[in-house]
């Protein structure tokens, strides 16, 4: 295509660049500050280029920075989040796939009602669910534990994962199920041998969705865990509390970047599948 620079094309690009810059400036500020020393930031202001590159910020933040009396950096909280997000993502995706498979391919009396109730969970605000979870975690003795958070995120994730998988599986032809039943395959064999091999596109979508959602979740983390049991999102806030008396923008910026790294990586590697998967059913 011959590229002709016209006025309208210029205007479009200028607008797009302006909007992109608007979104990217905060990230840029955080990245730059993560590489500046506290003195530099205090002297030259929050917005500015690094005087010299301070890679040490990342190392200190990771392993020795003090958050609410604990001077072990954000490292333990990062691993807390990992211990929370990995099982919760895997279990909720697996059950979502099983639910979706049951609801779309093994139609039973009242299946639409069950599906309706399950998807209702998608629309319930988080805050509404706090009190019921307080009771559940107390009775199970899971208060202030990572296991408690895993339970919450697994159960709450089911609404989304079931919705995603059910809507994907609904396009699997019923004849396939009939053929498999005549061949003698049962519920689980059909799932493992026929449905699951067709599932990677939707499983990638649900895994990305669950991983980013659970990793970034803050309210439950801060409500149900304290101190060393907190996931990284809650710990970041504890870190910013110190900001008031002795601002350490460099380390804090590095902490923000480290905390955002896993979801960024997941999106970079899985983003293509994510967009493809979301539109898979629509175009066919």
């Amino acid at each position: 295509m011959p590229s002709r620079i016209t006025l309208s094309r210029l205007a479009i690009h200028a607008t797009l660049i302006a909007i992109a810059a608007f979104f990217l400036v905060p990230l840029l500020v955080v990245v730059l500050n993560a590489l500046r020393s506290t003195e530099d930031i205090t002297r030259a202001g929050v917005i500015g280029l690094p005087h010299e590159l301070m890679w040490g910020n990342f190392q200190r933040t990771w392993s020795s920075f003090c958050i609410a009396q604990h001077c072990s950096g954000i490292q333990p909280y990062f691993w807390n989040s990992m211990r929370m997000v990995i099982p919760a993502t895997i279990v909720s995706t697996l059950f979502g796939a099983l639910n979706g498979y049951s609801l779309s391919l093994w139609r039973f009396r009242g299946d639409t009602v069950v599906f309706g109730i399950m998807t209702l969970g998608v629309f319930l605000p988080e805050q509404m669910r706090l009190v019921p979870w307080v009771i559940v975690l107390r009775d199970l003795g899971l208060f202030n534990t990572i296991s408690g958070l895993v339970l919450i995120h697994t159960v709450q994730g089911l609404s989304f994962t079931t919705l995603f998988c059910r809507n994907y599986y609904i396009s699997i032809p019923q004849d396939l199920m009939k053929a498999a039943r005549i061949d003698g395959a049962g519920y689980f064999r059909i799932f493992w041998r026929i449905v699951l091999p067709l599932s990677p596109p939707i499983l990638i979508v649900t895994v990305i969705w669950q991983f980013t959602g659970i990793w970034n979740e803050y309210l439950y983390g801060v409500t149900f865990t304290r101190g060393e049991q907190q996931p990284i999102t809650a710990a970041l806030i504890a870190l910013s509390v110190r900001l008031a008396d002795a601002p350490q923008y460099g380390e804090q910026s590095a902490a923000v970047l480290l905390a955002a790294l896993p979801t960024l990586l997941v999106y970079l590697f899985g983003g293509r599948y994510f967009l493809r998967g979301l539109t898979a059913g629509a175009v066919k």
């Binding site: 004849d175 396939l176 009939k178 053929a179 005549i182 041998r193 026929i194 091999p197 067709l198």
Partner: peptide
């Protein structure tokens, strides 16, 4: 044994 209009072959096999 049954043969279907849509053939119903298992796509991943």
């Amino acid at each position: 044994a049954m043969v279907f209009q849509s053939y119903a072959l298992y796509p991943s096999m």
